[in-house]
């Protein structure tokens, strides 16, 4: 495999992290969905490139799957959800954005620190990508924590899955097809359930603020 391809995968990994970071500091739901779509597209391209570089045709298939699911289907669903719920605007976050960003930097450092020994012994295409994938997973997780509304949390969950998927393809050349299909289905079912869940929250509380869920606990 050429050095150029591995550099290209590294670049895609960096873009993935960049998008995860951008999502962390984004207030608007609409922009969040756009960023998520971009992330899905990056993921599809990187999967295809890994497939080409390692001559594993089944990765092409999962690239196409990613494209269909994460670039077209889920964003469409999300757009419909926010249209129906009428929540397209700025949302306040639980922790202010600069603090979140600083915490994000610490997370990135932590992830890189964890991944460094692996990067040194690993022999796969792009050695450093595991750290980046880990960092994107942590950043998405963090995004879920800091948002008070349900829709950004769903997007955070999906972005986290993107990070995991990237780790699986770039660091270990993909999982068996069955597992991948299973995960894809899981995500789809997950988003449907979450969609239903969202509508129910709104029916119940007339708002999507998940802080209302605190009222559900028994005293």
């Amino acid at each position: 495999m050429s050095a150029f391809l591995s550099q290209f995968i590294n670049l895609l990994a960096a873009i993935l992290l960049l998008l995860a970071f951008a999502m962390l500091s984004q207030r608007r739901i609409l922009s969040l969905i756009h960023l998520f779509t971009l992330q899905g597209a990056t993921l599809a391209v990187s999967t295809a490139v890994v497939g080409y570089a390692t001559a594993q045709p089944h990765l092409y298939f999962s690239a196409v799957l990613t494209l269909l699911l994460k670039v077209i289907l889920i964003p469409l669903l999300l757009h419909r959800v926010i249209d129906r719920l009428n929540v397209r605007w700025d949302l306040e976050t639980l922790i202010n954005i600069p603090t979140t960003q600083l915490a994000g930097i610490v997370l990135v450092m932590f992830a890189f620190y964890l991944a460094q020994p692996i990067a040194q012994i690993s022999a796969t295409i792009a050695r450093g990508t595991l750290g980046i994938a880990l960092a994107s997973v942590l950043l998405s997780f963090m995004m879920m924590i800091t948002r008070s509304k349900a829709v950004p949390q769903v997007i955070g969950f999906l972005a986290m899955e993107n990070g995991l998927f990237f780790a699986a393809t770039a660091a270990t050349y993909g999982m068996p097809m069955v597992v991948e299909l299973g995960i894809a289905l899981d995500v789809l079912v997950g988003i449907l359930i979450l969609g239903v869940f969202l509508f129910h929250i709104r029916e119940q509380f007339d708002s999507l603020d998940i802080r209302h869920l605190e009222k559900l606990k028994e005293d």
Partner: peptide, 10 residues
């Protein structure tokens, strides 16, 4: 030292 290296940019 990997950890210190990470701190340098910060």
């Amino acid at each position: 030292n990997g950890f210190l290296n990470m701190l340098v940019p910060v």
